[in-house]
């Protein structure tokens, strides 16, 4: 079965949009971090799709750059989640909530 590249890109754009909208309308820090993960995975899908489309093209380097990039993005996403969740936990210990609306110490 050969899925056309445009379909993959549409799915990626959909994932990215869902992530972006979720980030904008949800106020829970953990859900917001989840939405960021969704956006990163949309990028991954687009990278892999692009890599497949360009594989063997005359101008492209022999290595499949896009696939390698997506592997790195997976690592970056994992690290970001680790750091982000650690910070969220530190926040929870101080205020007993992870709703971003409660973040009002700094404003003006």
């Amino acid at each position: 079965m050969n899925v056309p590249t445009s379909h993959l890109l549409i799915v990626a754009a959909g994932l990215f949009t869902i992530g972006a909208i979720g980030f904008l309308i949800r106020r829970n820090a953990i859900v917001m971090l989840l939405c960021v993960e969704l956006m990163l995975n949309a990028a991954n899908l687009a990278f892999v799709a692009g890599s497949r489309a360009h594989f063997g093209a005359p101008n492209a380097p022999p290595g499949a750059d896009g696939v390698v990039f997506s592997l790195f993005v997976i690592v970056v996403a994992a690290i970001e989640a680790a750091v982000g969740l650690a910070i969220v936990i530190a926040m929870y210990r101080l205020r007993r909530t992870v709703e971003t609306e409660s973040l009002q110490e700094l404003a003006g």
């Binding site: 960021v36 990028a43 982000g84």
Partner: peptide, 20 residues
């Protein structure tokens, strides 16, 4: 960390399109 994550997501998605 929350807004930084967002900006990373946006930037990498843009790069994936440019690569494509």
């Amino acid at each position: 960390v929350i807004f930084g994550g967002l900006s990373t997501g946006i930037m990498i998605y843009g790069m994936s399109l440019l690569y494509g």
